[in-house]
């Protein structure tokens, strides 16, 4: 954990966070997904969290949202501990901490119109319906969806547009932090680039911070100020995006980098040779 504190007062701070799921059966040992993870996010910053499936990256995001059982360490938001909060305090925090999920097809209730989906989080906090509906128009502008989108159902939209709706829902109460759980991995390449640019544009306009969970190194490089690499429940490397994605220190990050194929036949052939050489060395030692 080299990069040190990101800013004097971090927005979000994780210290030795342990997440365990109870094992099956009475005496079974709990299954430990995160083994003491520490990281911090400054206001307005994007921290990219990379790792392969099973590394615990999604669980880390869910722990921050209060959706995963934190059994050790502490999560602090704006200096105040938020792990193990009661339901009421947690709800109060929902103004500041929001989420965009991976799958834009199941993260929107198919039976509700876009207007209902977007006004719901505002109405629970006592915003009047007319105010909420006015705000929806601004939100739709912000994510570049047409105004008549509000009257339609999620299934009438493409994957990229649905993800825009999910982003609008996350934005509707002006959060300080959005946990983005693989928000572009279900999208087509060209859509992916546009949605990422939307994320960056919104960040520059509103100063929101992102915890951006992904398995794709090129995505994380594009959007993150800093990158943390998660491997089997431990953070093995943290640093600036350029540093981690160009000069990785940890062997796993190197392997991860070389494994991602690049769209250039000659360079890819070189990388493949390099990767196979590394693999042979590892086998030999």
């Amino acid at each position: 954990m080299t990069a040190g504190p990101a800013a004097p007062t971090p927005l979000l701070e994780l210290e030795d966070v342990v997440v365990e799921y109870p094992g099956k059966g009475r005496r079974a040992k709990p299954f430990r997904v995160l083994h003491g993870v520490s990281l911090s996010i400054a206001p307005g910053e994007t921290l990219g969290l990379v790792g392969e499936s099973g590394s615990g990256k999604t669980t880390l995001g869910r722990a921050v949202l209060g959706l995963a059982p934190v059994t050790g360490g502490s999560i602090r938001y704006a200096g105040k501990p938020v792990s193990g909060l009661g339901k009421r305090e947690r709800r109060a925090l929902s103004k500041d901490v929001q989420v965009v999920f991976q799958d834009p097809f199941t993260s929107l209730n198919p039976a509700m119109t876009v207007m209902d989906i977007l006004t719901e989080p505002m109405l629970v906090t006592g915003v009047s319906r007319t105010d909420a509906e006015r705000r929806v128009q601004t939100l739709l502008d912000q994510v570049y969806l047409p105004h008549d989108a509000a009257q339609r159902l999620p299934r009438e939209f493409s994957g990229g547009q649905r993800q825009r709706i999910a982003i609008a829902r996350a934005l509707c109460r002006d959060p300080k932090l959005i946990v983005c759980d693989e928000p572009v991995s279900a999208l087509d390449l060209s859509t992916q680039a546009r949605v990422l640019d939307l994320f960056i544009e919104i960040q520059e306009a509103t100063g929101v911070a992102y915890l951006f969970v992904t398995h794709d190194l090129s995505v994380v490089r594009h959007i993150s100020h800093r990158v943390a690499v998660l491997y089997r429940g431990d953070i093995v490397e943290t640093g600036h995006a350029a540093q981690v994605t160009e000069h990785p220190e940890h062997a796993y990050t190197k392997r991860l980098l070389l494994a991602a194929p690049v769209p250039d036949p000659q360079r890819q052939a070189q990388r493949r040779a390099e990767r196979l050489r590394l693999a042979r060395e590892r086998d030999a030692s």
Partner: peptide
């Protein structure tokens, strides 16, 4: 399609100069 691949693009700069 080729232009929308992020591969090989510049990494995002660190947050703020002082940092």
């Amino acid at each position: 399609l080729l232009d929308s691949t992020l591969e090989g693009g510049p990494a995002r700069a660190a947050l703020g100069a002082p940092l």
